[in-house]
Write a protein that binds this DNA or RNA. Structure first.
Lengths: 202, 202
DNA sequence: CGGGGTCTTGATCTCAATCAACCAATGTGG
DNA sequence: CCACATTGGTTGATTGAGATCAAGACCCCG
């Protein structure tokens, strides 16, 4: 799970084994054949092919299953890309039909997710970005403090929150400057500490 | 299914029979007990109770099932309100477990829906409103031309598209004036004809 | 009749988009 | 290892779409 071409967009042979995906890598492409995956860690962005390129269509975070539609159609509906480094494992690889209870749970989780992602597109720029980081770190539900979040590319943040890249750049530095966020590193090594993200929730 | 209190927010006894819901009526409230429903016609808005009131969390259109999470939890996760007049019928009322295939289909449909609703929050005001109307009339997939769409309250349109009520009001008159949309009636009797909505898609 | 919710319209202001450079990292091939 | 191209991120100046504030009209209901 890494000997693949380094070009993110070269659709290599469909992945079939568990493994790590680097930030920015395409996990699978819409319309390709393949199976479902569980996200063991990291965050994934889902896009729908549209008339003008790929369009943001959803997100998956640690614990979620992506590509479940392949159990029905055999092909992926969306394109999946890793926002931060991800660990994936095949889910339901044997095509054994998952139980109704399980599927109902996934359905409910998907609807919850929808609500959260939708909320990332309302409010002021600072709010949106902060909520995205919270969402990516698992919100307040985690016990572990001070988790470091590796930032996705600004372009991804921009498309998810429906802001421009420039605004996102300015917003992050601003949040860092006023102490709302603790930003460390630059470029591909940029992180924010979850602790400070949590802290805002008063 | 109508002898209930006319106050939309008085949570009467849980609905158990098929019937029509008027525009603006609350179908069920988050946390209440009840079952799942299939939307035979009309559109529904789903909201999540948040710190500052209800927050827009999703939509359901003709053919969708709402409240499926009750099969798992027994209670509704969201509050559902009719955007336009709706006809509903109980779904899976006997609590018989629906088949895996069916649930997978619903899961896929929900993800598709998520992508569409998300798209309603990007682009310029005119785009958003127009796409919402398209979405509510079933997009381009319907054969029947010239279907009339009863408009939801401007406040609902505003919250769905993340615009202000004033902007929505101005946008609709503007779209009507320039011929992009055919608007008829005023206030609660306002409609747009789907034909012209379709027409725009060049 | 009132009165509250809904819609419209106008004037003003603000936040973020846009346009335009520029720099910093990474990657490529000679 | 160095020139070069490409991608990703930053920063500044300007603009514009839509938010906000305010007032009034309309509708529906009791």
């Amino acid at each position: 799970m890494k000997g693949e071409s380094s070009k993110p967009d070269k659709a290599g042979p469909a992945r079939t084994k568990a493994g790590t995906i680097a930030r920015g890598q395409t996990i699978y492409k819409a319309d390709a054949e393949g199976g479902a995956w569980r996200v063991l860690s990291g965050t994934v962005r889902l896009d729908q092919p549209g008339p003008d390129g790929l369009q943001f269509a959803g997100m998956a975070v640690t614990g979620d299953v992506i590509g479940a539609e392949t159990l029905l159609f055999g092909r992926y509906t969306f394109t999946a890309r890793a926002l931060s480094a991800c660990v994936l494992e095949p889910w339901c690889a044997d095509r054994a039909e998952p139980s109704g209870q399980l599927l109902l749970g996934m359905l409910a989780a998907t609807e919850e997710r929808m609500a959260e992602v939708l909320a990332l597109r309302s409010g002021k720029a600072g709010e949106r970005v902060r909520r995205l980081f919270e969402f990516m770190t698992g919100g307040l539900t985690r016990g572990g403090r001070a988790a470091k979040l590796a930032l996705p590319r600004l372009k991804d943040i921009a498309e998810i929150t429906d802001l421009s890249v420039e605004t996102v750049s300015r917003t992050i530095s601003h949040l860092g400057a006023e102490g709302t966020l603790e930003v460390s590193g630059r470029y591909r090594a940029r992180h924010v500490t979850a602790e400070s993200v949590f802290g805002v929730r008063s």
